[in-house]
């Protein structure tokens, strides 16, 4: 039986993992390779790395990290951030990433998804979308870190993404992100029902119970989270044991 996936997400800045600001002005950083190894050993099913840097020089540091991670872990990982062209995709795949996650660039140029899927295969093209509720039962796609409304309907964009050739969708809910009050079940379920490709839920994880709810049949195929793992609030083996007890299929024999 296909297992539901648990995916820690790591932001990488200047070659280090940024764990956000837990306390004011204190930025916790760590070595991405070490963190990747730890999550791998703990039983993470996949990892996501977001490059939050901008310059070309820093991009090369990031690519070196991708290669180091690939050398150290034997689980799939996705790279996101700064993917704008087919050449960007080629570079990260060649460095050892399994999938690329495309967000704003796809909104600006939807054909990028199509070209990328044709060239590299749908299996490695992930469409990541940032959605925010704009009225009752309606969500809109936002870009630039959730600052700019594109007035594109989230459900329509998800369906378009599948049609263009994306092999997976990541649904980030801006409304619940960072709140730790649970994933956006309503939005994730709506999208999962509208498409026939895997759907990854993102944003809002705070407790083991939240994972359980989002990974129920018919909702998400995978759950992505950052801070609950980074700060040791949820230990992956505990999470998987709890999910298994609730009959949610998870991989435990790592």
């Amino acid at each position: 039986m296909l297992a539901k996936r648990i995916i820690p997400c790591l932001d990488v800045d200047k070659g280090r993992v940024v764990k956000g600001k837990k306390f004011k002005d204190i930025k916790d950083v760590a070595d991405p390779v070490e963190i990747a190894k730890r999550y791998n050993d703990e039983g993470a099913d996949e990892l996501v790395f977001y490059d939050i840097t901008a310059s070309n020089e820093e991009r090369n540091i990031f690519l070196e990290i991708v290669e180091k991670v690939a050398a150290e872990i034997a689980i799939p990982f996705t790279v996101g951030g700064g993917i704008r062209t087919l050449e960007d995709i080629h570079q990260v795949l060649r460095a050892g990433a399994d999938k690329v996650s495309i967000n704003s660039s796809a909104v600006k140029d939807p054909q990028l998804i199509k070209r990328a899927a044709k060239k590299f295969g749908s299996q490695c093209i992930v469409l990541s979308l940032d959605a925010k509720k704009v009225e009752f039962d309606k969500w809109s796609i936002f870009i630039h870190g959730g600052r700019k409304n594109t007035y594109r309907d989230a459900l329509e964009w998800a369906i378009a993404g599948e049609t263009l050739g994306a092999g997976e969708l990541v649904v980030n809910s801006i409304d619940v992100d960072g709140e730790k009050n649970g994933y956006n079940v309503e939005l994730t379920k709506k999208i999962a029902e509208a498409v026939n490709i895997p759907v990854v839920a993102s944003g809002g994880a705070g407790t083991i119970n939240h994972f359980q709810t989002i990974l129920e049949p018919g909702v998400a195929d995978a759950a992505l989270a950052a801070s609950v793992f980074h700060y040791g609030e949820i230990y992956i083996p505990d999470l998987k044991n709890a999910l298994s007890k609730h009959n949610i299929p998870v991989r435990r024999n790592t």
């Binding site: 039986m1 296909l2 099913d45 299996q123 490709i197 895997p198 195929d221 995978a222 991989r251």
Partner: peptide, 10 residues
């Protein structure tokens, strides 16, 4: 079923 078949299976 969802296509692609993506993830860990037995």
């Amino acid at each position: 079923v969802k296509v692609p078949h993506m993830g860990w299976n037995t």
